[in-house]
Design a binder for these strands. Structure first.
Lengths: 259, 259
DNA sequence: CGCAGAGTTGAGGCGCTTCAAGAGCGGTGG
DNA sequence: CCACCGCTCTTGAAGCGCCTCAACTCTGCG
């Protein structure tokens, strides 16, 4: 229970939500639940975890959900908005390790360890559900399906990181950006939005940090993709014109790039 | 139990081990346990998980413990020897995602998902403990300390991957190799071996794949490190002469490399 | 309306790759 | 035991891709 006590500064759901909206804090009535921690839990299990969400928290654009190195207390599920996660090392390097959108989980790397390794910053006004670790531990012991789901979600995070390693280790710049755009497209689609048209919530510099490129290179690639008819770009608004063209780029050999 | 049944081809511990050596299959009598899954479990909990190790398996150099994409049945703890994990994508790219040594766990990314994402190959004659997922799930429900430990271990794997992302995304070639050598040194020390002198079990090409470099570059860097007095190299035998020199390299700004 | 931050575009250079040739090591068979 | 062969490693020369530096434009916000 110490983890729950540690987030006491945040108002519990009951106090924050007027009675009329209170239901919205329950996983069972949340339309993002399939994407989120509950996944394909059946109705009975779903009802049992309804007070797993200890609180909600709203963040403004640019605000930090937690800092790198901060004490781990809870994982967070994104209810609305989006975030970037940033890694820091002791020598002044910074690297964006991922972008996260509605239904995705933040802070998994702190599970069972003392601290968050990456910092999480809101890329727009956002809202998250706070899932205290103590509650997660308890519910996972009681509900086998949830335990398994947590493992799945953790494994998925590892697989996601592997994708980034592959991208950084083996792809040339244009393939990295193509991968990035296709990934955003797929996640946008999965959330019921357009797969071909979306708004980038992050800067060229943040994209560059994520992809292991400089912002100028990212900018040039956007222009180049536009020139060959793969996409339309207007600042942060992107429309994909030729999905297969982007996919084809990934199959090209990566000359002049590490194996 | 289906996971345990699926590994039936491997002889259970009781059958493989003569009575005199049988104890060696128990975590409680394994001198690697602190590094491994059990971690700092107390004696009582340790006794309870003694048949978590369903079997042992020996592999020869070059043999695959499991292939990428194979059905996930168990995680593996390295009892002796070492492994590389390799990632593959659909477009013919390959990337070494890590090197693993005694006491470390393989196959975590398959937890709760259907399949291993990376393949694991023995870099020398090795032996592993087989930990069936069904048993892990069950023991974690019964033993809170083990549940937490599993989370810690999973989170550590994520943190490890973040380190690789940082390395690939922000460091120049010589910093990558320095990081690699310092990492091997620390892990060697932690296992009771020399921190300054060790034998590389992997080829230059495998190192290169891991570091996002070509094998020729790796080779040149070894020579260069030798020339400036940082290390002695004789093929795969390495001796670190100047730890602080290597550490100093990491602090240098990374001109001509992504942010 | 002005200013700061974000994005674009150009010119030049460095770092790592590519291509190539040769040397060293280990395993195998005579 | 030695000679051979394949694989790994080393080293050199040349080139490409992305970075650096820099100037300018566009956008959003007070």
């Amino acid at each position: 229970m110490q983890a729950a006590a540690a987030v006491i500064a945040i108002q519990p759901v009951e106090k924050r939500m007027p009675a009329a909206r209170k239901h919205a804090a329950n996983c069972s009535s949340c339309n993002l639940r399939e994407l989120c921690l509950p996944g394909a839990l059946d109705a009975e299990d779903l009802a049992r975890i309804d007070n797993l969400v200890y609180a909600r928290r709203r963040l403004k654009r640019g605000e930090a959900l937690y800092q790198a190195g901060a004490e781990f207390k809870a994982i967070y599920a994104i209810r609305s908005g989006s975030f970037k996660a940033s890694l820091f090392d002791g020598d002044g390097r910074e690297q964006v390790s991922g972008f996260f959108m509605a239904g995705e989980l933040l802070g998994l790397e702190g599970l069972g360890s003392g601290a968050y390794q990456a910092g999480a910053i809101a890329l727009e006004d956002s809202e998250v559900c706070v899932l205290p670790y103590a509650l997660i531990e308890q519910f996972c012991r009681e509900i086998p399906a949830l335990q398994r789901r947590l493992h799945t979600v953790l494994a998925r995070e590892i697989v996601r990181d592997h994708g980034v390693m592959m991208l950084l280790g083996t792809m040339r710049a244009e393939q990295r950006l193509a991968t990035f755009l296709l990934n955003l497209s797929a996640r946008s689609k999965r959330r019921g939005y357009s797969s071909s048209e979306f708004h980038l919530r992050m800067s060229r510099e943040e994209i560059g940090s994520y992809l292991g490129l400089k912002l100028e290179t990212v900018s040039r690639l956007f222009s180049q993709f536009h020139d060959v008819g793969l996409i339309d770009v207007d600042y942060r608004h992107v429309r994909i014109l030729d999905v297969q063209g982007l996919e084809r780029m990934l199959r090209e050999p990566s000359a002049h790039v590490p194996n």
